[in-house]
Design a protein around this nucleic acid. Structure first.
Lengths: 106, 106
DNA sequence: GATCTTGTGGACTACTTTTGACCAAAAGAA
DNA sequence: TTCTTTTGGTCAAAAGTAGTCCACAAGATC
């Protein structure tokens, strides 16, 4: 039986990728010309990665960029919902708005 | 048969409320002690309303505050998705993350 | 045409938030 | 202890946003 770690955030995902490759923060940071501390903060979700960062991570760890982008964007949505203390219903509202816009605007 | 206008954004909703009451931007702005231009921008989604604004609008137009808040928050999500050119799938990802967090954290 | 009203929108300032760098210190391994 | 890894605080700079002010365009009315 394989244990699959449930990954909840972009940062955790990133950290998991790094650990799966047995690399240290310093090593990865050096490879990508990033400040070690910045990378650490991104892994702890204390700083947001830029689009450029995400692309770098995807290239470096050989994963799909879209996979990381979606992880990042969904985090943003999660954060907003938890933070504003609303409920999951707004996801439905958002979904229908998007469908409406897509059929009526282009 | 009643024609129901499909409202897609917070701003449009707000404008519709105003027009249903046959009021001008200046009138509403004066009542709420807002700059007319700012109110116009909010109706056109060029400025984001604050929580306080939303409360004022709800009181003034006698609608549920939560209704307006949800409209506003869902707009934010819609904007993010359309803007980042991802797909509806991230709503699913976000939903499962939230459910996961709620069952595992509190 | 002159005037009034309504909504629009540019330009600007002030304010808030966020980033990324730097460095010190904690934590962990050997 | 010593070396390495990770964490965390601080801060200047950059980026983003709000709200104000003013001028203008379109439309209505006289």
């Amino acid at each position: 039986m394989t244990v699959v770690k449930k990954i909840a955030t972009f940062g955790e995902h990133l950290r998991t990728l790094r650990e799966m490759n047995s690399l240290t923060l310093r090593e990865v940071a050096a490879s990508l010309a990033l400040d070690t501390s910045l990378l650490a903060k991104i892994e702890r979700n204390e700083r947001q990665p830029t689009r450029q960062h995400i692309k770098q991570f995807a290239d470096f760890f050989k994963v799909e960029e879209k996979e990381l982008v979606d992880e990042f964007l969904s985090d943003q949505i999660v954060y907003k919902i938890l933070n504003e203390e609303t409920d999951l219903n707004i996801l439905k509202v958002a979904e229908s708005k998007i469908k409406y816009l897509k059929t009526h605007n282009g």
